[in-house]
Design a protein around this nucleic acid. Sequence first.
DNA 1: CTGAAAGCGCTAACAT
DNA 2: ATGTTAGCGCTTTCAG
Lengths: 339, 339
Amino acid sequence: MVKITDVARHANVSPSTVSYALSGKRPISPETRRRIEDSIRELGYRPHAGARSLANGRSQVIGLVLPLRKGIHLPVVMQFVTSVLTAAREHDHDVLLLTQNEGEEGIERVARSAMADAFVVMDVEMEDRRLPLLRTLDRPCVLIGFPSEPAGLTCVDLDFAGAGEACVEHLAALGHRTLALVGSPPEVYVRGTGFARRVAAGFTAAAGRLGLSASVHPCPETPAAARAMAEQLLHEQPGLSGVVIHNEPITQPLIAAFQAMGLRVPEDVSVAAICPDETAEQAAVPITSVSIPSSEIGTRAVELLMAKLAGRDDVPETTVLPAALTPRITTAPPPSGTP
Amino acid sequence: MVKITDVARHANVSPSTVSYALSGKRPISPETRRRIEDSIRELGYRPHAGARSLANGRSQVIGLVLPLRKGIHLPVVMQFVTSVLTAAREHDHDVLLLTQNEGEEGIERVARSAMADAFVVMDVEMEDRRLPLLRTLDRPCVLIGFPSEPAGLTCVDLDFAGAGEACVEHLAALGHRTLALVGSPPEVYVRGTGFARRVAAGFTAAAGRLGLSASVHPCPETPAAARAMAEQLLHEQPGLSGVVIHNEPITQPLIAAFQAMGLRVPEDVSVAAICPDETAEQAAVPITSVSIPSSEIGTRAVELLMAKLAGRDDVPETTVLPAALTPRITTAPPPSGTP
DNA sequence: CTGAAAGCGCTAACAT
DNA sequence: ATGTTAGCGCTTTCAG
């Protein structure tokens, strides 16, 4: 293995000069720097990560805590992982993966053994069991999602309440008077994951404000459940003309179910979704949607983390990405004659 | 930070004794061991990962190289990641994530900086650019998929050729005489990813052997492409009664397209898929399928890696998981009157 | 069965 | 602008 002393000897400088040339923490004359760089290249030198972290207390690794349970849409997760990875590399960091089911113990192990300098924690619940740990950890972290008591933590997320509202407002503007929200699977609500509830809250609030009648329906992520849901909705809400879907896997099946029941989209029922743009665009009939910007959230999370690692004290506690609705072709005015 | 000397002092032993108690590399008297364990617990000691890796040359980390491009089905990837993570933890290792687009440079960086002891490389192509690097790396690795020249490397994968064959044999046994394979998107074949080609090879070989007429059709992963494909198939192969799908995202849409064209499944067309069991089971009509056992592959890969890290020389170069077809309800004898 | 002590490779004072 | 050197926390000879 080629080490820093080898490079130093080869370039006729001291090890510290090589170290400083690498870190940029003190000025190096152009001539010296050139010799060092040549030597590094020639010898194929790579600093030993362990030695480095032992000496300066930085592993240049961020821990990413992934959700791996039911009710989270994988493409969204993957997009997120990718963006975190890319952003981390741009800041010269690597990413260590941790799973939810390793739980607090996993985070603590990695933090206390100095394997990672900081953490990105996905899928944060309202009353997340990990919060006490995260608050006391000496290492910075950024949460994706908002717990009910976010004070003292750094959180990023889409404005899910705003997303729910935006859908309602869009449908209301088209003239719809009776709406339904088909949401995440029941277990997602039960475990108190913020985003599901916030969509429902925004949806309900906007409907109330605009005087629309509206109902909320958690729904399992299976096509069969989607079909059952379609039937149920039409039975329970005869005047229903606008549906908001916040449940990726059944977005298509639900639309298909309406069509199978003889309803045209958007002529008879309008549908707006909260989902990644990809899903909305690729659909047989492109779907009016509020996009879930996973990549942007991931990138932002890493940037916040880097700011905290740099010791900056102006890092905002909460970052809420605005919800923007893109009209496509699944929404239109309700059929005339609708109450 | 509490360190090994703190534990040693607290337990009235030398640091080396603590170290040996932790590693089990030499016998420790029960009494001493108990004292050490108590001290560790009491003080909340965690070995510093960097220091450890500096001292003994092992990071206890494995690098996982993920594919992130088009044409790979994300749920399969995620399942795989999960199983690698779980298996790694069982062997007291962590997982560092690398993306395909970091390429060879990323693997080399992580290897040479001693961040990871070993690698799992997914989505290996027939003539993979990374092979030369992987062969010369001083660190063991396991490939998921088979390159065309696997000698000297350790590879694991499903028997995809066998999967193609199994589908053909199943359909042939039911009496079908004209088959089509709807495969991965064209780019997957173009870039020489082994599994797509091997399915096609197995499919074609089995059909030839059994005297069936058969055709192979790469297909983009969009519902629209699936619909177009359905039309094309029926035009080009009038006697077609059996279809094998090896393209997760369009499995459902293709079946739907057949139905939309007035064909019943399985009465008019039989459909067998190569996909995760989950997909096959959750379908509106559960699909006869050969399962893609991502979890098993991931677990196996880690076990092979651990064997190599342990210096065992009996690690098989190739591990081929057998393809098993599960009949469900999308396959049946062809309509009578079919040639 | 247990200790003492010499590094592992790098960084960051402290020099000059 | 560069060099010297004392650690960082742990493992592992070498001794006993």
